[in-house]
Design a protein around this nucleic acid. Structure first.
Lengths: 342, 342
DNA sequence: CAGGTCAATGTTTACGCTAACATTTCGCCG
DNA sequence: CGGCGAAATGTTAGCGTAAACATTGACCTG
């Protein structure tokens, strides 16, 4: 709890309502009324106040407002890296949805490299500074981190199975089933899987569903090949995996790993889709331009973000928590990386 | 200025210092001292207060703090979409840098679709709610939008040439020169250019530099082919451009367009790099796994973000604006998409 | 042991805003 | 033209916090 003193820099405060009031020759309350668009202000007075606001360069102080109202009109997003394909997409949707409802977004990054130490803006959670929180990190990560959400703070979780909070997520299982079934229906004997990292729930659920789907079709599940979402890992693992001529169909847990896999296949001179079929997951915009264009499972990060905000704002504004999970269906986008086995 | 009334939902306020004080049997001021880690508090008292904080579940109210201090410990990031490769990378860096200094990030998205209407969180700029702002949008966009930065608010601009604010950016010209020169040195007679969208300054500067470099080498600049940063546009334009057998070297203004271009070349059965060489810009992680792996210009979004925050915080904490431009050099990453002409 | 020092703690006040209540002003009716 | 209601405007108070100043009391010094 020991902290440094605040930086001594003295931001000169801007003009306040009192200044506007003085300038316009009215009371502060009248200025407040004008600022808030109340109707019971004389037209002439309103104009005078408006002019005064302009001349003194008035901007409302949102801290004072927040203090008064007990609300911040801001929602926090706890996340690891922004620059992940899915995360950035989701964040975009969250942001637009929130802004449309008059809330702003405060980023609350969780950085592993600060073990034990609760620093800076991250600790905003320990303060009252947001009206609610969207958690956008894989739970396993969450478990390790020392993030603790205060009681009574509305929370919506994305892609996090337990924890007693409302959750919004892509239906990972349905998506993985789509991919696996597609490959089986093309006639492949079985389907190999290039999975995401072990700490990821999404990865876990995609893998489970892949396995379950194979079982349902009475197929043997080959050993899983584990990646970390990156194209690099897809390449490295792909080089190992596809050296085996028995491999004719691979379901990669995301498009980026699929890209690395495609590269490996090119280097190994294994034709796609003639010899090996590949399906990805996400349908990032680039997937249509991989070589060959990638057949993949499309999920709507935008929809996930939007729904999460809807749920969160409902909770914030009603005060009631409804712990429901929303699962959003995926679709298979069929392009040129899949074909019947040779 | 007419606004709706605030939502009526009454978030029950959390416990305040007064509650802690009562619980611990001390004055509010003592609680404040403990919370802020002042040293002149008796060890026993401190402990009593700490316990009291725990029992009542105290969290400091950052609105009250901000009101008191006249600072928000938050910096705003005005940006269009987050989910752009460069933007998300930069945002990541900005976020970490800010958080490391104890500031949090407030996203202030600029959405074109709200013509004239200043809505929700976006209008945070009209309020005092941040201590400074990083502008992360292409200026042409900025011009059109009705964003007006209040006087006296510290601002740092990324990738925006004029405007009298400090600016941090990748050295676009140097990067484009690197790409162009590389192709010329391989022996290509000239270099085609697949540019970014016209409203983008980065695109503009890359194009200018490409043109200047050709001129410096006494080469004719072929007509520019205009894309919009997307892989799709790279593909569509690439199909047109590369139908021309004279084209042996293309500098794409970013990696994603280069990807689309590569796809077009595959479809046209033009070998890369044997028949056509391609250079990209950005060096996104995936570029190493394109087929063939892409030679490209690496820029450090992370460094840009970091520097921007440094500059902004310097201004916030000193109160003095130093209008200096920082230009960060790029490097050429040589992979397999370039070779001497056939 | 008077006088002084200093650490620990308490009291007051102001930060900017707006709900609630109080007052003024004006038009209109009987 | 007195009086009444409604509209316009003003006054008060308090949201949670911490700086500035005030008070208390323990301890030291000569």
């Amino acid at each position: 709890m020991e902290q440094d003193a605040r930086p001594s820099a003295v931001r000169q405060r801007g003009p306040s309502m009192a200044d506007v009031a003085r300038e316009a020759g009215v009371s502060g309350q009248t200025v407040s009324r004008v600022v808030n668009g109340r109707l019971n202000v004389d037209q002439a007075t309103r104009q005078r106040v408006l002019d005064a606001m302009r001349t003194v360069g008035y901007r409302p102080n949102s801290a004072a407002r927040a203090l008064r109202y007990g609300q911040f009109r801001s929602i926090g997003v706890i996340m690891g890296v922004v620059s992940t394909f899915g995360n950035s997409r989701t964040l975009d949707a969250i942001t637009s949805a929130a802004v449309a409802k008059g809330y702003s977004i405060t980023l609350m990054p969780v950085t592993r490299p600060t073990p034990g130490e609760v620093m800076g803006a991250f600790s905003r959670l320990d303060e009252q500074a947001v009206d609610g929180v969207v958690i956008l990190i894989e739970e396993h990560e969450l478990d390790q981190s020392e993030v603790e959400v205060p009681d009574g703070l509305p929370v919506v979780v994305i892609s996090n199975p337990r924890s007693g909070y409302p959750m919004v997520d892509t239906d990972q299982a349905q998506g993985a089933e789509l991919a696996t079934t597609h490959l089986l229906e093309l006639g492949h004997r079985t389907v190999w899987h290039l999975s995401g990292p072990p700490h990821s729930y999404a990865a876990e659920r995609r893998e489970q569903s892949w396995r379950a789907t194979l079982r349902r079709h009475d197929r043997q599940a080959p050993p899983v090949v584990v990646g970390d979402w990156s194209a690099e890992s897809g390449y490295v693992q792909g080089m190992k995996l596809c050296a085996d001529a028995a491999v004719t169909a691979v379901f990669a847990a995301n498009d980026q790993m699929a890209l690395g896999l495609l590269r490996a296949l090119h280097e190994l001179a294994r034709l796609v889709p003639a010899e090996v079929s590949v399906v990805g997951f996400d349908d990032m915009a680039e997937a249509a331009h991989f070589w060959p264009p990638l057949t993949t499972v499309r999920q709507s990060f935008a929809e996930v973000g939007r729904r999460a905000v809807d749920a969160l704002l409902a909770e914030i504004e009603s005060g009631e928590r409804h712990v429901v999970s929303v699962k959003l269906p995926t679709t298979l986008v069929h392009r040129s990386s899949t074909a019947p086995p040779p």
